[in-house]
Nucleic acid binder design. Structure first.
Lengths: 192, 192
DNA sequence: TTCCTCATTGGCAGTCACTGCCAATATAGG
DNA sequence: CCTATATTGGCAGTGACTGCCAATGAGGAA
């Protein structure tokens, strides 16, 4: 039963992590990143600061943690794409699917995106995430391309373009269709 | 004489900043980023920690500070490029010139690049710099393109590709020509 | 030269992120 | 109920950074 026990523990851990992410996001959004201390977050969740740091490695991770899996999801979609599709097209479509999911979150997704865009202290963590995404996605792209450096550069370029588009979307008044915008921009970057 | 006096002060400031950058780079390279304290850097320069923080805002800035001007330099080159050149080509060539300068630094440039690539704590500052570069360069690209978002995305994409190429170059054993590699990769990303 | 003014300096104390250590506590399985 | 094991939270310490203030130093006026 050690298996089950371990699994239960993991589920419990994930629940706490989600609670931390939720509390942190709310607090950052209402009081600002700097003016929110780890103490505030821990208190909101109902645990000690010392324990909070057993669930997240850094303050940045409180809000960025949940973004970890996205890279794998995108990589899986690249792999699953029709083999006749070019590396670029497979990649752009896979990333666009993520854009759709973000857009589906509605206003909360927009608010979070605005927070990430306007909080310089989060950029280190954000860069880390993007790096991990790139590490996950690049091999899938490389398989269609046979060139490691080009594959990595292509992934980095597309993710960078995504960032620009998401920021534009997050701050635009009129409702813009995020993935349409992304497709348009990616097309323009790819054609020049 | 207030003018001259002010200028002298500025020159003095820049000299101290350079001394800080040099000391920080050396110390980070020999002892590692974490194991180097601001106290160590200040002592090496011969000033107090309190004063050091009047020259640089953060520990990251000690080594990243000198990278600030590069964005403007690239922007100027994009503007200066032949108007018949496409936005993409002008941008890629301007960035390649920077790659040449980096390569011209030789081993010290490589070592610094390796440090930046392997030190996660510097990624926030690095992302900030890249953002500032992008803010400086994008208007110059937009002028040839008439589309703000596409211009920003193009710049972000090319800078992301540059990062990948620089990292590859910094860690490769055999001497690779940095800007050749960059041109090849940029071409591949742009054509797909 | 001497004095005055203003910028720069550096020490001090305080905040906050984060860590190692340890004793108290909870919990699953016998 | 009891024990092995995991989890918890307090405490003290480090290091980045900030506001405050008294001391210092350098240039110009008298």
């Amino acid at each position: 039963m050690t298996q089950l026990r371990g699994r239960a523990r993991e589920l419990q851990r994930d629940a706490v992590r989600r609670a931390i992410a939720e509390a942190a996001t709310t607090l950052f959004l209402t009081s600002g990143y700097d003016r929110t201390t780890m103490d505030d977050i821990a208190r909101e969740v109902g645990i000690s600061v010392r324990s909070a740091f057993r669930y997240v490695e850094t303050k940045e991770e409180t809000i960025l943690g949940p973004m970890a899996e996205i890279g794998d999801a995108i990589a899986a979609r690249v792999r699953a794409a029709d083999q006749r599709q070019s590396a670029w097209d497979a990649l752009v479509h896979a990333v666009a699917r993520f854009a759709d999911e973000l857009a589906a979150e509605g206003e909360s997704g927009k608010a979070r995106s605005r927070l990430l865009a306007t909080t310089p202290q989060l950029r280190g963590g954000l860069a880390d995430k993007r790096r991990h995404w790139a590490d996950a996605i690049s091999p899938a792209v490389e398989q269609r391309l046979d060139d490691e450096v080009v594959a990595r550069a292509m992934v980095a370029a597309v993710l960078a373009a995504l960032d620009v588009v998401v920021e534009k979307w997050a701050f635009s008044e009129e409702p813009v269709a995020l993935s349409d915008l992304f497709h348009r921009v990616a097309g323009a970057v790819g054609d020049h």
